[in-house]
């Protein structure tokens, strides 16, 4: 009966990720029925993680750790910007004194922070695709298609990393700067390049895992 589509909307995938879910841990002492809760494995939402998709071996573990650190750094950056927004709202409301350039800082910060998330999402197989039409295929058949998909993802990520790097260079050469603070425009552009390189690396790693399965290696 397997569902076909993984929803994009799956903020869920998130809340669901560790088997202990959501509100159940709220410290309410009412966990008697917890076994009835949603029990999804890592990689969750239905179709996803075939075991071979998960981090495996020393390289898999290293890449998983790197992508997790990357996502946590991005998350920290987001929380810092949340703090800045709060200060700015209070300052603007009470003292008519917003954080100077809060708008452009958020734009730069959000770009850098969001880019750090892609590789983690790839390592937990969270990127969305349609599974509906192929779940009748044998495991190796699906692994082959998934390997090709991961290869394409890695290729696109590399292409974007390369072109973004070129954009950072031309931004540096043109000397453009942010409107209010005069911060150099090339810095945030350059900072998203490593995130895309990591994204490409994780994608190629996963492609390798899938092709390994195609070649007959189960683990």
């Amino acid at each position: 009966m397997h569902t076909s589509v993984v929803s994009l909307d799956a903020a869920a995938a998130a809340g669901l990720r560790p088997t202990k879910v959501c509100g159940a841990q709220g410290g309410e002492g009412e966990g008697a029925n917890e076994d009835a809760g949603v029990q999804l494995e890592p990689g969750s939402i239905e179709h996803v993680a075939q075991p071979e998709a998960l981090p495996h071996g020393p390289w898999g573990r290293r890449l998983y750790a790197a992508s997790r650190v990357s996502a946590l750094m991005g998350g920290t950056l987001f929380m810092l910007m949340i703090g800045m927004s709060l200060v700015s709202i209070v300052g603007r409301k009470l003292f008519s004194l917003p954080v100077p350039g809060d708008f452009e800082v958020l734009q730069m910060g959000a770009a850098v922070a969001s880019a750090t998330f892609f590789s983690y999402c790839q390592m937990v197989d969270g990127h969305v695709r349609v599974d509906f039409f192929t779940h009748w295929l044998p495991r190796r058949g699906r692994a082959f298609l998934d390997g090709v998909a991961a290869l394409l993802m890695g290729g696109v990520a590399l292409l974007v990393a390369w072109r973004t790097g070129v954009a950072a260079v031309s931004s540096y050469e043109s000397g453009e700067a942010s409107l209010m603070l005069g911060w150099p425009g090339w810095v945030p552009i350059a900072l998203i390049v490593p995130a895309f390189v990591l994204f490409a690396t994780t994608s190629l790693y996963i492609a390798g895992r899938r092709f390994h399965v195609v070649a007959g290696g189960a683990q």
């Binding site: 903020a11 998130a14 990720r17 997790r68 998350g75 999402c121």
Partner: peptide
């Protein structure tokens, strides 16, 4: 954070 990160990446890649 990781949950929000995963869902964000999923949306932004599309």
């Amino acid at each position: 954070v990781l949950g929000a990160a995963e869902a964000t990446a999923m949306i932004f890649l599309v």
